[in-house]
Design a protein around this nucleic acid. Sequence first.
DNA 1: TTAACTCGGATAACCTTAGTCCGATATAAT
DNA 2: ATTATATCGGACTAAGGTTATCCGAGTTAA
Lengths: 156, 156
Amino acid sequence: MLKLNRTTEYGLIALSHLSQKALGEAASAREMADLYGLPFDILAKTLQRLKDAGLVQSAQGARGGYRLQRELTQVTLSEFLELMEGNTSVVACAERLSDSLSDCEFHSRCRIQGMMRGLDSRLKVFLSGIRLSELTATSPLELVQLQPLTQKQVHS
Amino acid sequence: MLKLNRTTEYGLIALSHLSQKALGEAASAREMADLYGLPFDILAKTLQRLKDAGLVQSAQGARGGYRLQRELTQVTLSEFLELMEGNTSVVACAERLSDSLSDCEFHSRCRIQGMMRGLDSRLKVFLSGIRLSELTATSPLELVQLQPLTQKQVHS
DNA sequence: TTAACTCGGATAACCTTAGTCCGATATAAT
DNA sequence: ATTATATCGGACTAAGGTTATCCGAGTTAA
């Protein structure tokens, strides 16, 4: 159920790296790939995605690279996962729910559909309570229970 | 990150079905497979697993089938997932942590290992706070925030 | 004796993820 | 200008895991 995609891990490592750079200093995909032993091509694509999402900004050409564009304290794990992994529903059929509920022949008899949606929303609350900054801190931290962000703070 | 295995879904459906049977009345794998449109073979194996874990008991032969063996109010989602999906760590490398931490060449430079473990444990608290009975209720329920089970109540 | 069951292994089909390879474009430094 | 270092982005292959299917064997009530 819970395993992160590799790209998500790579993204987290990259963001962590960037968050430690001096302000205005860029890091290239190559630099990070070599330092952490990550496959360059994939890391590059991942950074692209982060850029499209507005989490980082990029500079092309020699001496180019990536910089953080948003404060990681203001990005929730929920938002990040949605970005990196697409739909975060726990059940396959829930993804299609918005399209057509009656795709599933056994819908009327289905026992788990309702509760899975409930679980989804509860999980989302949980994930929204974790800030990316908590996950990208340098030292092995104990995660402490934080107040969930207010609606205004949550972008997505 | 979050998608459940199919077998986990099947298991949930089966448990839900069993929880609605009158006490002492058994349901067969065939019966459930037909009713919910699930692949018989897989459902059978799933039930086997639930039996080995002590969640249900089985009776062989004609008129046999499965019955609940434990109160679903006393089984946490955490325990159930561990049972159905094995290791529930969010990162692949964390599974090997207990074996040998230094498998990963980049361990010393790794930025996410510590925090991923923190995330793991926080997630576990979350999952331990959800009882299977909440997920197997008949009607599409809103999940309410419950008190986590006490240590005594949590078996695993 | 038969039909309806659980039990359990081996194997095949499928699908997603992860990784690779390629070329194009942009820009700073020489 | 030319070169080296970057981002950008598509197409493709490889690998691995999940899901499903196909067996046969053992149990038990009718």
